[in-house]
Each structure stands twice: as structure tokens, then as C-alpha cells.
């Protein structure tokens, strides 16, 4: 069986339905709830059956010809790097604080997308983040924690 986009999608949804159905059966009910016509498991079961049925239908009727994007060059590396950067930003935010973490996020983001001149990197990211941070903290009165690292370093 040739794996076209549709078939890959169908297999994904079939696997999702199986997993969802399995965890749906694990939902703890209160005593007597299983006798009710509708309990916490009813909708998950209905969704599981419909999803599995449609996924099998799509699998069976999918066009076997792969509508490939052979002519299209995907920039996977850049996207993976940007997603990785997003994860790192999430992890660094609590430690470095909003200001520093965001400046680093923008500098790295610009660099990943091909901006190499340090002057541009700093001239765009630093003022932008400082104005953004000022707007949030002073304008909208939002408290942004300074970051655990600074608290540890400067609180003695």
C-alpha cells in the first residue's frame, strides 16, 4: 500500500481514536453512573467510534497516488530550530526573566532566519523588547517577575 498524504492522515486519526478510546474507557465513574444513559464516558465513546469509522473509510477510499510536494523545498531545519527556540524560551522565561529571555529569543530568531549583522540584531531586538516590556509593566501595570536567577544572585 502506497502511503499518500491522505493515508498517513487516516492512520494518524485511527491511532488517535484507539488511544482516545482506550483512555476513555479508563475514565472513573461514580457508582451508578454506568447505568445512566449519558455519563462522562458517553461522548468520548461516540467520538471514538465516529473517528475510527471515518479514519478507516478515509484509509480505504484515499487516493493511492501520492500528491507529493517533490518540487517544493521545505525549510524543515529552520522550523525545527524555531520550535526548539520556542521551547527554550518557555524554559528560560522563569529563570532569566521576561526582559532578558525575550531579547535572547528575538536575537536567536533573527539569526536563525538569516540576519547575521550583530548591529541589526541588537538595534532591533533591544529597543523593541524594552519598549514592549515598558508598555506591559508601566502602561498595562502587569507584574513580570525578574527571573529566579537574578533573585538568587542579588537577594544575597
Amino acid at each position: 500500500m502506497q502511503l499518500s498524504k491522505e493515508r498517513i492522515g487516516a492512520l494518524f486519526f485511527l491511532a488517535l481514536a484507539i488511544l482516545y478510546g482506550y483512555y476513555g474507557s479508563e475514565i472513573q465513574l461514580f457508582p451508578g453512573d454506568e447505568l445512566e444513559p449519558m455519563n462522562a464516558r458517553t461522548l468520548p465513546y461516540a467520538i471514538t467510534i465516529l473517528t475510527a469509522g471515518l479514519a478507516i473509510f478515509l484509509l480505504a477510499t484515499a487516493n493511492p497516488d501520492s500528491e507529493d510536494d517533490a518540487h517544493q523545498v521545505f525549510e524543515w531545519k529552520l522550523v525545527v530550530l524555531l520550535i526548539g527556540l520556542t521551547v527554550l524560551y518557555g524554559l528560560a522565561l522563569d529563570w532569566l526573566g521576561f526582559l532578558l529571555a525575550t531579547i535572547l529569543f528575538l536575537i536567536c530568531g533573527f539569526r536563525i532566519l538569516g540576519v547575521t549583522r550583530w548591529r541589526v540584531l541588537l538595534q532591533v531586538s533591544v529597543p523593541f523588547v524594552v519598549i514592549f516590556w515598558g508598555g506591559l509593566t508601566q502602561g498595562l501595570d502587569i507584574y513580570l517577575a525578574p527571573g529566579r536567577l537574578f533573585t538568587i544572585l542579588f537577594s544575597g
Binding site: G9, P44, I47, L50, T51, L54, A55, L58, T61
Partner: peptide, 13 residues
Amino acid sequence: VIKAVLMTLFGLM
């Protein structure tokens, strides 16, 4: 159509 229904079901999930 089938893909949209599947995505709707995913949203329901």
C-alpha cells in the same frame, strides 16, 4: 469533507 469531519472530531476530543 471527511478530513474536516475528522478535525471537528479532534476538536471535540
